Amino acid sequence: MPVVLDPDAAAVYRAFLEAGRPAYETLTAPEARADYARARFATNPEPPDLPHVTELAIPAPQGAIPARLYAPKEPRRHDGVSPALVFFHGGGWVIGDLDSHDVVCRQLAVEGALIVISVDYRLAPEHKFPAAADDAIAATQWIAANARELGIDAACLSIGGDSAGGNLAAVVALAARDGDGPALAGQVLIYPAVDFAMTHGSHSEPETSVLLTHSVIRWFRDHYLNGAADIHDWRASPARAASLIGLPPAYVLTAGADPLRDEGAEYAERLRQAGVSVATRHYPGQFHGFFTMGKLLPQANIAVREIGSWLKGLG
C-alpha cells in the first residue's frame, strides 16, 4: 500500500540518513548495541520523575534476570497494591536493554497510573532462541508469584512490549494460557514481530524499509534463530500458534512505514476472530521504532497516552 511519512517522521528519517550511521548488518552485535544506546539521547523525551525506581534481580534457571520496577506518583488505587505492566523492550532480540526503554517505561507508569516492570532478557547471538522467550515467561511467572511483595495486584497484571518485545509479550500470553500461567489482564503489542516467515506484503514494499530495513530484519533473525526450523515454533512466531482462543484482551499498534505492519494487523484480526477483545491503533505516517522517539515525534507521546488510557480500562 502507498506509504507517505508524516512531516515530522520524514524529518527524523532525513536526519538519520544525513548522520551517516552505519547499518546494523555491517556491525557486530556489541557494536550495534553501543550505537543504539547512543542514539536514544537524541530521540527520547525527558524522563518523567517517579517516586520509586527499583532495580530487581529475578531468579531464573539460567541465572538472575535484571529488571527495573517503576512506581507512579499517583497510583489509581490506595489499598497497598497496584495494577502492573510487565514490559519487554524491543531491539530485534539483539540490542536494547533497561536503559534504552527507561523513558517510555516511566511514561507508561505515569499515563497508566500503574507499576511497570521492565525485563532485561538475554540477548542473541550469545543467547539464541528460545532464551529470550524463556526469560520473558520466567520473569512474568515470578512477578505474579511475588506480586504482593512488589505491591502488585496479581489479578491486574498485564504484559507488553515493542517490536521484539511485542513478540515476547505475545509468546508469554500464549504460554500463560496453555498452563504456565499466570492469568493476565491484557497484552500490549506495539508493532509486534509475530511471524518469522516474513512473507507478508509489507516485508517487500520499498516504502516500509525505513530505519528498520528489510536487510536489518534478516540480520536480527539470523542472530536470534538457530535455523529455519525455529520459524515454525510458536515461541518464535506466535502467529504460528494453533489457536488464539482464550488469550487476554489486546491492544495492537501498527505503523505504516514498517515491514512488520501487515503481520501485526493480521494477528490483531486473528485475535478478534478467536473471540479476543482487541483494540487497534494504526499510525499510517510513522515508521517502525517511533514509539520511543517522543523527543522528536509528537505522535509517540500520543501513543503512550492512549496505551496508558487503555490499560486503565482493564481495571
Rank of each mutant, 00 (worst) to 15 (best):
V3M: 04
A10R: 03
A10K: 00
A11M: 03
A11P: 03
V12W: 10
G20V: 07
P22D: 03
P22S: 03
A32M: 03
R38L: 15
R38S: 14
P48R: 00
L50H: 12
E55Y: 00
I58H: 02
Q62R: 14
G63I: 07
G63R: 06
A64L: 14
P66M: 07
L69M: 13
E74S: 05
P75A: 08
R76A: 13
S82D: 05
L85I: 05
F87G: 06
G90E: 09
G91L: 08
D97H: 04
R106I: 06
L108N: 07
A109I: 11
A109S: 15
V110R: 02
V110W: 00
A113S: 14
I117V: 15
D120F: 01
A124L: 04
P125E: 00
E126V: 13
F129M: 01
D134Y: 08
D135C: 05
D135R: 06
A136P: 11
T140A: 04
A144W: 03
N146V: 05
A147V: 03
L150D: 12
G151M: 04
I152Y: 04
A155W: 00
I159P: 05
G160L: 02
A164C: 12
V171M: 11
A175V: 07
D178T: 01
G186H: 09
L189M: 08
M198A: 15
M198R: 14
S209Q: 12
V210E: 10
L211F: 14
T213N: 02
H214Q: 11
H214R: 12
S215A: 14
R221T: 11
R221G: 11
L225E: 06
D230R: 03
A236C: 01
S237I: 00
P238Q: 05
A239I: 05
P249I: 01
G256I: 10
D258G: 02
R261G: 07
D262H: 01
G264R: 00
Y267R: 04
A268F: 01
R270P: 13
R281T: 12
R281W: 10
Q286G: 07
F287E: 10
G289K: 02
F290W: 11
Q299W: 01
I307C: 05
S309T: 14
G313W: 00
L314H: 08
